[in-house]
Design a protein around this nucleic acid. Sequence first.
RNA 1: UAAGCAGACCGCCUUAUCGCUGCCCCAAAUUAAUGUGGGGCGGAGGAAAGUCCGGACACCAUAGGGCAGCAUAAUGGGUAACACCCAUCAUCCCGAAUUAUCGGGAUAGGACCAGUGCAACAGAAAGGAUGUACAGGUAAUGCUGUAGUGAAAUCAGGUAAACUCUAUGCGGUGCAAUGCCAUGUAUACCGGCUGUUAAGGAUUGCCCGUCCGUUGCCGGAGGGUAGGCAGCUAAAGACUUUUGGUAACAAAAGUUUCAGAUAAAUGAUAAGGACUUCAAUCCCGAUAGCUAUCGGGAGUUGAGGUACAGAAUCCGGCUUACAGGUCUGCUUUUUUU
RNA 2: CGGGAUGUGGCGCAGUCCGGUAGCGUAUACGUCUGGGGGGCGUAGGGUCGCAGGUUCAAAUCCUGUCAUCCCGA
Length: 132
Amino acid sequence: MDESFGKKEKLKSKIVIDSLFAEGNSVKKYPLRLVYLPLENSSENVNKVAVSVPKRSFKRAVDRIKLKRLMREAYRKNKYLVTSNLYKNYALMFIYTGRDIWNYAELLRSSEELLKRFVEQEKMKDHEKDIL
RNA sequence: UAAGCAGACCGCCUUAUCGCUGCCCCAAAUUAAUGUGGGGCGGAGGAAAGUCCGGACACCAUAGGGCAGCAUAAUGGGUAACACCCAUCAUCCCGAAUUAUCGGGAUAGGACCAGUGCAACAGAAAGGAUGUACAGGUAAUGCUGUAGUGAAAUCAGGUAAACUCUAUGCGGUGCAAUGCCAUGUAUACCGGCUGUUAAGGAUUGCCCGUCCGUUGCCGGAGGGUAGGCAGCUAAAGACUUUUGGUAACAAAAGUUUCAGAUAAAUGAUAAGGACUUCAAUCCCGAUAGCUAUCGGGAGUUGAGGUACAGAAUCCGGCUUACAGGUCUGCUUUUUUU
RNA sequence: CGGGAUGUGGCGCAGUCCGGUAGCGUAUACGUCUGGGGGGCGUAGGGUCGCAGGUUCAAAUCCUGUCAUCCCGA
């Protein structure tokens, strides 16, 4: 199982991020929020992923970096849910909406649930399209 | 042995698996500089923080002169430099001694015989003063002392963290500086030569000054957007020893290479260890008398805890945050000789 | 990375430049006018002036450090 998470899989383009927030859909599972958008005409066959922790919730840089590392780790462990169930590529943005610092085990469970919901939602949509 | 104060230093460790990132090596592939696979070596701090000072470095030939503005303020030294550090003096505070001094701490510590301002309440009077009572004194007079108000009452008064004066220093902007590459629009801009000599424009807050300055020709491509490379980490480096110096520090010799990310890398999981807190258990001593209380010690078990905090051009300081531990010096205390 | 502003009763603000008394509106409590409500009038309570240190006889005010919030530029 591929559990790597290299430079190529990181979402960096400002344009894509802007359109992601403008047109993207979102799924929530406390303390996380996932904003996503299908990637059209992408040359690389990978999902682009970014994580974000608002400065408003966590003042100290140590806490923000810690949470971002944990979120990256949780995605890395759960990315098979996306890659094995969906054939399209997506731009994904994880946002930490909680106010307290969760530990890794809780965060892992939460992100697993979140990604399952995301996959389900996208499958439904594709199914509807096929019927039409 | 315990406590306090001051200074210096350290600031969790090991292994395995899965990941991130920089450099190097190897392999095959396409191709001519990349990705893929494998291996090796590195990968946050004492404050990386606050951004309060000082530099290095880079660019702007508008950097010159004056005013304004800002900063500093005992003396001497250190330093690339400083508002930092060291030494000495002075003033104040604390302690010991006791009127010689000793130890520790603090100090924005130039100048109110250049000028101006300010002083609530109380008080006769608060800055070209003189009132009351008593006493003294005179030829005479607030001439002198005491009382009273107040932080301060005539004194070269106090106050400059009041304006100000004196001395010294300060060009501006900052690595998103700056140089280059690719992309790419079509005349804003830049460079050179030429022409015109005056309206205008530029600049550090203002003035002087300085520079540019409507044409034509030649050359180059701007701004914006999203990227890449360099700058970018070998340096006022770190460590050890010796010498000079009261010290800060300097010099010499030797050893050594120690993060470079960019939606921003150092993480996750498991096991073990270290330190430490609490509870239970065991042992010893004392007091009451077979169970309680107090003190000390040891290992086991269980439950915790391991702070403050994350590099972003780089250094030197300052300030602030910080669990716990180590060492040195001084003072006091206990025991033994 | 750089620059700036603010912090004062529960809430919104003045006072800070130029140091001596902390005040205004609103809210709260009580009284009063009214048959009652609303509203008016009167009285009262309530403030470590963000925090710490310094200068001064005296600090919300001057100086230094620090904390928090907000804004701007690249």
